[in-house]
């Protein structure tokens, strides 16, 4: 079966971002960009399904700027077979991205679509659920285990109180949680081979879908800063301060 994996280019998770002085957004000039960590887990899961002989082909897709080709090449080096870039010049909201991804789902007809549960820049946690809504497919979000059997997929999900397992009819949408797997590193020969794998570029505005958004960002500010407090010398001093100064115990 065919597996579609959606990935996103985001600021690297180790970068401490800075808000622009004009409050128009976060300063991303000359900042290290990487594949969103949850998307890496999605790629890894697809590659493992292929290694088990469950998946026959892995198509990786992203919606974003031309530079997002780097992240598609990374996914190809990790084991995806071919890539699709839906090129968008401006930043799109989750719903527009879900609509763009649906156009790829309609064309490719995958049995399973794997996405990360959230991108670490916008922290929305929406796209997979929205794609499931648009396609009418079942959704297994925040997955920590994915097991395919026949025309169903059993997904163990991380929920507030623990774990929950649901059975979904295929085709289905799965979004990954951090504990689903440990992504591998791309080896140099695989990075070289990835350069020859097919990468198709489609313009978002040519898809015939509405990319307009019902939300707009008015401003982006730095959060209230928390200043460092005091270092105490002993446990007794700590307990005394918590009791009498902070009055929290």
């Amino acid at each position: 079966m065919k597996v579609l994996v959606a990935v996103k280019r985001v600021v690297d998770y180790n970068v401490k971002v800075r808000v622009k002085p004009d409050n128009s957004g976060v300063d991303l000039a000359n900042v290290k960009m990487s594949m969103n960590p949850f998307c890496e887990i999605a790629v890894e899961e697809a590659v493992r399904l292929k290694e088990k002989g469950v998946a026959s082909e892995i198509v990786v897709v992203t919606v974003g700027p031309a530079t997002a080709q780097e992240q598609l090449r990374t996914a190809l080096a990790l084991g995806a077979d071919r890539a699709v870039l839906i090129e968008a010049t401006e930043e799109l909201n989750s719903l527009a991205i879900a609509k763009a991804l649906k156009s790829v789902v309609d064309k490719e007809q995958p049995q399973l679509v794997i996405l990360g549960k959230q991108a670490i820049d916008s922290d929305n946690n929406q796209t997979g659920q929205m794609l499931a809504a648009l396609t009418g497919y079942a959704q297994g979000t925040f997955a920590s285990k994915v097991e395919l059997s026949g025309d169903k997929v059993n997904v163990t999900r991380e929920i507030d109180g623990g774990l929950q397992t649901v059975a979904l009819n295929l085709p289905a949408i799965v979004t990954t949680d951090l504990r689903l797997n440990e992504p591998r590193y791309a080896s140099l020969p695989n990075i070289m081979k990835a350069k020859k794998k097919p990468l198709e570029v489609v313009k978002a505005q040519d898809l015939g879908i509405s990319l307009t958004s019902t939300t707009k960002t008015l401003k982006v500010e730095a959060p209230a800063t928390r200043s460092a407090g005091v270092k105490v010398k002993s446990v007794a001093e700590l307990v005394e301060k918590l009791k009498n100064e902070a009055k929290v115990i």
Binding site: V11, K16, V17, V19, V26, I120, D121, S122, D123, T214, T215, K216, T217, L218, K219, V220, E221, A222, P223
Partner: peptide, 13 residues
């Protein structure tokens, strides 16, 4: 957004 390192003010239509 960005793991709480920025606060966005957003308007919905």
């Amino acid at each position: 957004i960005y793991a709480g390192n920025a606060i966005a003010t957003v308007q919905s239509s």
